[in-house]
Design a protein around this nucleic acid. Structure first.
Lengths: 111, 111
DNA sequence: GTATTATGCCTACCGATTCTAGGCATCAAT
DNA sequence: ATTGATGCCTAGAATCGGTAGGCATAATAC
């Protein structure tokens, strides 16, 4: 990832992928663009991170994939959230919120 | 880590350790307790995570260590933030804030 | 008195995940 | 004709937290 962009922390990528798919079916390359756009260019997911992650996520049944043609007529693999994926997104968002809260508590502490 | 507690994400442990030491010198076992206490029991750092992390952090020059006796007269290894460690804590907190913000932006998006 | 729990340090190995660095193909633009 | 963007993929390295042990002493419980 480029040096001026934030590195992801392990475990956040799945949530970002699932979240971007919750907005509608999308192919891999588009997921990267959507995450970058939604985050105001702060997050840049590398292809070498994304495609293995998509594979893992599909294995877990959180997304389903199919080949189709995009709006310009090119072949692309479209991913779609499954019901289990939607559930998983909720779970991961809740975990994320808990972690952010817990860390905020620690950081509130003053000497 | 116990199942009802939040798992840490990779990269957050260093920040928590540095933060807890920013409140004052402390030995390893005490760091675990302080993080647990400050987070309202939400974060429980395992010893097998902490000690290797302390070693890494010491190698990087962010903390210094010395053996001393605690208030009950037992030997313990006390860690103290170095100037570089304080700097590093600021950096990591800033990165964390950026990431939290970026992810919040992505999550704000509605279909 | 003895057994358990808490305190205190450590290591070895595992598993998960992200990044770097490639490869390959098509299409648009220069 | 070459470059850059789009689109998919893999292999290998590196990082790091967790699990599961080991060891020692002190305090508490039975």
């Amino acid at each position: 990832m480029a040096k001026d962009k934030a590195d992801l922390l392990q475990g956040t990528l799945d949530m970002l992928i699932l979240k971007s798919l919750s907005l509608g079916e999308l192919h891999g390359y588009g997921i990267i663009q959507r995450i970058r756009q939604l985050s105001d260019e702060m997050l840049n997911v590398e292809q070498g991170s994304l495609y293995p992650a998509l594979y893992r996520i599909e294995q877990k049944g959180w997304v389903s994939a199919r080949w189709d043609t995009n709006e310009t007529g090119r072949e692309a693999k479209f991913y779609k959230l499954t019901r289990a994926g939607r559930k998983q997104l909720e779970t991961q968002e809740a975990s994320w919120d808990r972690l952010v809260l817990a860390i905020a508590k620690v950081r509130q502490a003053t000497a």
